[in-house]
Amino acid sequence: MNLINTLIAGVSIGAIYSLIAFALILVWRSTRVVNFAQAGQAAFSTYVGLSFEKAFNNFWLALLAAIIAGVLVGAFVEVVIVRFIVKRATSAATVTVAPVIAMLGLLGIFQGVMGLIWGGEYQAYPTAFSRDGLTINGSQIPFSQNDLFVLLTVVAAMSVAALIFQKTSLGLAMRAAAFAPEVTRLSGIRVSRIRTLGWAFAGGAGGLAGVLVAPTTFIAPNSFDLLLVFGFTAAVIGGLDSLIGGVLGGLALGIGLSVVTGYLGGSYTFMTAFVLLIVVLLIRPQGILGARGARRA
Protein backbone atom coordinates (compact mmCIF):
# COMPACT_ATOMS: atom_id res chain seq x y z
CA MET A 1 0.00 0.00 0.00
CA ASN A 2 2.87 2.32 0.90
CA LEU A 3 4.59 1.73 -2.43
CA ILE A 4 1.37 2.32 -4.33
CA ASN A 5 0.90 5.58 -2.43
CA THR A 6 4.32 6.88 -3.40
CA LEU A 7 3.76 5.85 -7.00
CA ILE A 8 0.45 7.71 -7.09
CA ALA A 9 2.00 10.80 -5.52
CA GLY A 10 4.46 11.08 -8.42
CA VAL A 11 1.90 10.94 -11.18
CA SER A 12 0.61 14.51 -11.10
CA ILE A 13 4.03 16.17 -10.78
CA GLY A 14 5.24 13.79 -13.50
CA ALA A 15 2.44 15.07 -15.72
CA ILE A 16 3.75 18.61 -15.24
CA TYR A 17 7.30 17.51 -16.14
CA SER A 18 5.76 15.96 -19.24
CA LEU A 19 4.25 19.30 -20.23
CA ILE A 20 7.59 21.08 -19.91
CA ALA A 21 9.34 18.26 -21.77
CA PHE A 22 6.66 18.54 -24.46
CA ALA A 23 7.36 22.28 -24.80
CA LEU A 24 11.13 21.74 -25.01
CA ILE A 25 10.84 18.92 -27.55
CA LEU A 26 8.37 20.79 -29.76
CA VAL A 27 10.81 23.67 -30.05
CA TRP A 28 13.87 21.43 -30.45
CA ARG A 29 12.29 19.45 -33.28
CA SER A 30 11.44 22.52 -35.32
CA THR A 31 14.33 24.86 -34.57
CA ARG A 32 17.19 22.76 -33.09
CA VAL A 33 17.27 25.05 -30.08
CA VAL A 34 16.83 23.89 -26.49
CA ASN A 35 14.74 26.66 -25.02
CA PHE A 36 16.37 27.29 -21.64
CA ALA A 37 14.29 30.48 -21.46
CA GLN A 38 11.19 28.27 -21.12
CA ALA A 39 11.46 28.60 -17.32
CA GLY A 40 11.24 32.38 -17.68
CA GLN A 41 8.43 32.21 -20.25
CA ALA A 42 6.40 29.88 -18.04
CA ALA A 43 6.93 32.03 -14.93
CA PHE A 44 5.98 35.18 -16.86
CA SER A 45 2.77 33.55 -18.11
CA THR A 46 1.97 32.36 -14.59
CA TYR A 47 2.43 35.90 -13.23
CA VAL A 48 0.02 37.17 -15.89
CA GLY A 49 -2.41 34.50 -14.71
CA LEU A 50 -1.90 35.57 -11.09
CA SER A 51 -2.64 39.19 -12.00
CA PHE A 52 -5.91 38.13 -13.65
CA GLU A 53 -6.69 35.98 -10.64
CA LYS A 54 -6.23 38.96 -8.32
CA ALA A 55 -8.24 41.31 -10.57
CA PHE A 56 -11.23 39.06 -11.34
CA ASN A 57 -10.95 36.38 -8.67
CA ASN A 58 -11.65 33.70 -11.26
CA PHE A 59 -9.33 30.69 -11.53
CA TRP A 60 -10.48 29.65 -15.00
CA LEU A 61 -10.12 33.11 -16.49
CA ALA A 62 -6.61 33.29 -15.00
CA LEU A 63 -5.74 29.88 -16.46
CA LEU A 64 -6.90 31.02 -19.89
CA ALA A 65 -4.96 34.29 -19.55
CA ALA A 66 -1.77 32.42 -18.61
CA ILE A 67 -2.07 30.09 -21.61
CA ILE A 68 -2.73 32.98 -24.00
CA ALA A 69 0.18 34.94 -22.48
CA GLY A 70 2.39 31.87 -22.95
CA VAL A 71 1.36 31.56 -26.60
CA LEU A 72 2.03 35.24 -27.29
CA VAL A 73 5.37 35.27 -25.46
CA GLY A 74 6.48 32.10 -27.28
CA ALA A 75 5.64 33.55 -30.68
CA PHE A 76 7.27 36.85 -29.77
CA VAL A 77 10.50 35.15 -28.70
CA GLU A 78 10.68 33.18 -31.95
CA VAL A 79 9.93 36.11 -34.26
CA VAL A 80 12.06 38.74 -32.54
CA ILE A 81 15.06 36.80 -31.23
CA VAL A 82 15.41 33.15 -32.21
CA ARG A 83 15.03 33.71 -35.94
CA PHE A 84 17.80 36.29 -35.87
CA ILE A 85 20.17 34.19 -33.74
CA VAL A 86 19.76 31.05 -35.83
CA LYS A 87 20.39 33.02 -39.01
CA ARG A 88 23.57 34.60 -37.63
CA ALA A 89 25.18 31.59 -35.96
CA THR A 90 26.24 29.44 -38.86
CA SER A 91 29.87 28.46 -38.28
CA ALA A 92 30.63 25.06 -36.78
CA ALA A 93 31.81 26.59 -33.53
CA THR A 94 28.80 28.82 -32.92
CA VAL A 95 25.88 26.84 -34.32
CA THR A 96 25.36 24.88 -31.12
CA VAL A 97 26.77 27.31 -28.56
CA ALA A 98 25.15 30.58 -29.66
CA PRO A 99 21.49 29.54 -29.29
CA VAL A 100 22.12 28.11 -25.81
CA ILE A 101 23.76 31.32 -24.64
CA ALA A 102 21.11 33.48 -26.30
CA MET A 103 18.40 31.55 -24.47
CA LEU A 104 20.23 32.03 -21.17
CA GLY A 105 20.44 35.77 -21.84
CA LEU A 106 16.74 35.76 -22.55
CA LEU A 107 16.10 33.87 -19.30
CA GLY A 108 18.04 36.55 -17.43
CA ILE A 109 15.99 39.31 -19.09
CA PHE A 110 12.72 37.54 -18.27
CA GLN A 111 13.68 37.04 -14.63
CA GLY A 112 14.82 40.65 -14.25
CA VAL A 113 11.66 42.04 -15.86
CA MET A 114 9.48 39.82 -13.67
CA GLY A 115 11.36 41.05 -10.60
CA LEU A 116 10.78 44.65 -11.67
CA ILE A 117 7.05 44.18 -12.29
CA TRP A 118 6.01 41.70 -9.62
CA GLY A 119 8.86 41.77 -7.08
CA GLY A 120 11.12 38.95 -6.00
CA GLU A 121 9.11 37.46 -3.13
CA TYR A 122 7.50 34.06 -3.38
CA GLN A 123 3.76 34.48 -3.89
CA ALA A 124 1.05 31.92 -3.33
CA TYR A 125 -1.04 30.79 -6.28
CA PRO A 126 -4.60 29.68 -5.53
CA THR A 127 -6.17 26.43 -6.69
CA ALA A 128 -9.70 25.69 -7.75
CA PHE A 129 -9.69 22.34 -5.99
CA SER A 130 -8.82 20.99 -2.58
CA ARG A 131 -5.23 19.93 -2.05
CA ASP A 132 -6.12 17.49 0.75
CA GLY A 133 -5.60 13.84 -0.13
CA LEU A 134 -8.63 11.90 -1.28
CA THR A 135 -10.07 9.33 1.08
CA ILE A 136 -10.60 5.84 -0.27
CA ASN A 137 -12.09 3.13 1.98
CA GLY A 138 -11.48 5.31 4.99
CA SER A 139 -7.73 5.78 4.39
CA GLN A 140 -6.26 8.94 2.95
CA ILE A 141 -4.03 8.65 -0.11
CA PRO A 142 -1.48 11.26 -1.21
CA PHE A 143 -3.54 12.19 -4.26
CA SER A 144 -5.81 15.22 -3.99
CA GLN A 145 -8.64 16.61 -6.07
CA ASN A 146 -6.09 19.11 -7.35
CA ASP A 147 -3.74 16.31 -8.43
CA LEU A 148 -6.61 14.72 -10.31
CA PHE A 149 -7.37 18.07 -11.95
CA VAL A 150 -3.69 18.46 -12.96
CA LEU A 151 -3.56 14.96 -14.40
CA LEU A 152 -6.83 15.33 -16.34
CA THR A 153 -5.82 18.76 -17.66
CA VAL A 154 -2.48 17.48 -18.92
CA VAL A 155 -4.10 14.44 -20.50
CA ALA A 156 -6.66 16.71 -22.19
CA ALA A 157 -3.96 19.10 -23.43
CA MET A 158 -1.86 16.24 -24.77
CA SER A 159 -4.88 14.71 -26.49
CA VAL A 160 -5.66 18.00 -28.21
CA ALA A 161 -2.02 18.28 -29.27
CA ALA A 162 -2.01 14.70 -30.57
CA LEU A 163 -5.23 15.36 -32.51
CA ILE A 164 -3.73 18.47 -34.08
CA PHE A 165 -0.49 16.69 -34.96
CA GLN A 166 -2.03 13.53 -36.38
CA LYS A 167 -5.36 14.59 -37.86
CA THR A 168 -5.07 18.12 -39.23
CA SER A 169 -3.16 19.48 -42.21
CA LEU A 170 -1.57 22.01 -39.87
CA GLY A 171 -0.16 19.15 -37.80
CA LEU A 172 1.11 17.47 -40.96
CA ALA A 173 2.83 20.71 -41.96
CA MET A 174 4.41 20.99 -38.51
CA ARG A 175 5.73 17.44 -38.62
CA ALA A 176 6.99 17.93 -42.16
CA ALA A 177 8.69 21.24 -41.32
CA ALA A 178 10.49 19.62 -38.41
CA PHE A 179 11.47 16.53 -40.42
CA ALA A 180 12.59 18.11 -43.71
CA PRO A 181 12.36 21.91 -43.79
CA GLU A 182 13.75 22.32 -47.31
CA VAL A 183 11.34 19.85 -48.91
CA THR A 184 8.48 21.34 -46.94
CA ARG A 185 9.37 24.79 -48.18
CA LEU A 186 9.41 23.47 -51.76
CA SER A 187 5.91 22.10 -51.19
CA GLY A 188 4.68 25.64 -50.68
CA ILE A 189 4.50 25.74 -46.89
CA ARG A 190 5.79 28.79 -45.04
CA VAL A 191 8.20 26.96 -42.74
CA SER A 192 9.06 30.10 -40.77
CA ARG A 193 5.39 30.59 -39.87
CA ILE A 194 5.09 26.95 -38.85
CA ARG A 195 8.11 27.42 -36.61
CA THR A 196 6.56 30.47 -34.96
CA LEU A 197 3.45 28.40 -34.37
CA GLY A 198 5.53 25.65 -32.77
CA TRP A 199 7.11 28.15 -30.37
CA ALA A 200 3.64 29.55 -29.63
CA PHE A 201 2.26 26.07 -28.82
CA ALA A 202 5.27 25.38 -26.62
CA GLY A 203 4.80 28.70 -24.84
CA GLY A 204 1.14 27.87 -24.19
CA ALA A 205 2.12 24.48 -22.77
CA GLY A 206 4.65 26.25 -20.53
CA GLY A 207 2.00 28.69 -19.29
CA LEU A 208 -0.35 25.83 -18.52
CA ALA A 209 2.40 23.93 -16.69
CA GLY A 210 3.20 27.07 -14.70
CA VAL A 211 -0.37 27.54 -13.47
CA LEU A 212 -0.63 23.85 -12.61
CA VAL A 213 2.61 23.72 -10.63
CA ALA A 214 2.50 27.18 -9.01
CA PRO A 215 0.12 26.20 -6.16
CA THR A 216 2.75 23.67 -5.01
CA THR A 217 6.02 25.51 -5.71
CA PHE A 218 4.71 29.09 -5.27
CA ILE A 219 5.71 31.68 -7.82
CA ALA A 220 8.87 33.82 -7.93
CA PRO A 221 10.97 35.01 -10.88
CA ASN A 222 13.30 32.01 -10.63
CA SER A 223 11.01 29.46 -8.98
CA PHE A 224 10.73 27.39 -12.17
CA ASP A 225 14.48 26.84 -12.73
CA LEU A 226 14.30 23.42 -11.14
CA LEU A 227 11.20 22.59 -13.17
CA LEU A 228 13.20 23.39 -16.30
CA VAL A 229 16.02 21.05 -15.29
CA PHE A 230 13.54 18.26 -14.54
CA GLY A 231 11.68 18.97 -17.80
CA PHE A 232 14.94 18.78 -19.71
CA THR A 233 15.83 15.53 -17.95
CA ALA A 234 12.43 14.12 -18.89
CA ALA A 235 12.90 15.25 -22.49
CA VAL A 236 16.33 13.61 -22.67
CA ILE A 237 15.05 10.39 -21.10
CA GLY A 238 12.42 10.20 -23.81
CA GLY A 239 14.76 11.28 -26.59
CA LEU A 240 14.69 14.95 -27.56
CA ASP A 241 13.05 14.14 -30.88
CA SER A 242 10.06 12.20 -29.65
CA LEU A 243 7.02 13.98 -28.20
CA ILE A 244 5.54 10.75 -26.86
CA GLY A 245 8.94 9.83 -25.43
CA GLY A 246 9.05 13.15 -23.59
CA VAL A 247 5.60 12.62 -22.10
CA LEU A 248 6.54 9.11 -20.92
CA GLY A 249 9.90 10.43 -19.69
CA GLY A 250 8.11 13.06 -17.60
CA LEU A 251 5.79 10.51 -16.00
CA ALA A 252 8.67 8.09 -15.36
CA LEU A 253 10.75 10.85 -13.80
CA GLY A 254 7.88 12.09 -11.61
CA ILE A 255 7.11 8.61 -10.31
CA GLY A 256 10.78 7.67 -9.91
CA LEU A 257 11.60 10.83 -7.96
CA SER A 258 8.53 10.31 -5.78
CA VAL A 259 9.75 6.82 -4.87
CA VAL A 260 13.23 8.13 -4.03
CA THR A 261 11.79 10.98 -1.97
CA GLY A 262 9.45 8.59 -0.18
CA TYR A 263 12.09 6.03 0.76
CA LEU A 264 15.37 7.98 1.00
CA GLY A 265 14.28 11.55 1.77
CA GLY A 266 13.90 14.81 -0.14
CA SER A 267 17.59 15.74 -0.24
CA TYR A 268 18.33 12.92 -2.69
CA THR A 269 15.67 13.97 -5.19
CA PHE A 270 17.88 16.20 -7.22
CA MET A 271 20.90 13.92 -7.26
CA THR A 272 18.69 11.11 -8.53
CA ALA A 273 17.47 13.22 -11.43
CA PHE A 274 21.03 14.27 -12.22
CA VAL A 275 22.41 10.73 -12.12
CA LEU A 276 19.48 9.55 -14.22
CA LEU A 277 20.19 12.28 -16.79
CA ILE A 278 23.87 11.38 -17.03
CA VAL A 279 23.22 7.64 -17.17
CA VAL A 280 20.64 8.00 -19.94
CA LEU A 281 22.95 10.31 -21.89
CA LEU A 282 25.79 7.81 -21.65
CA ILE A 283 24.00 4.49 -22.08
CA ARG A 284 21.13 5.29 -24.36
CA PRO A 285 21.85 8.75 -25.76
CA GLN A 286 19.01 8.61 -28.26
CA GLY A 287 16.52 8.26 -25.40
CA ILE A 288 13.89 5.63 -24.80
CA LEU A 289 11.97 6.32 -27.99
CA GLY A 290 14.39 8.49 -29.96
CA ALA A 291 15.49 7.31 -33.37
CA ARG A 292 18.99 5.88 -33.65
CA GLY A 293 21.60 8.46 -34.55
CA ALA A 294 19.29 11.31 -33.68
CA ARG A 295 21.71 12.57 -31.08
CA ARG A 296 24.22 13.94 -33.56
CA ALA A 297 23.45 17.55 -32.76
Binding site: V33, V34, T96, V229, F232, F274, R295, A297
Partner: peptide, 10 residues
Amino acid sequence: GPYLAGATLA
Protein backbone atom coordinates in the same frame (compact mmCIF):
# COMPACT_ATOMS: atom_id res chain seq x y z
CA GLY B 1 25.82 21.02 -27.83
CA PRO B 2 22.53 21.20 -25.96
CA TYR B 3 23.10 17.86 -24.19
CA LEU B 4 26.33 19.07 -22.66
CA ALA B 5 24.65 22.38 -21.81
CA GLY B 6 21.77 20.58 -20.10
CA ALA B 7 24.04 18.18 -18.22
CA THR B 8 26.29 20.96 -16.92
CA LEU B 9 23.21 23.00 -16.06
CA ALA B 10 21.89 20.13 -13.97
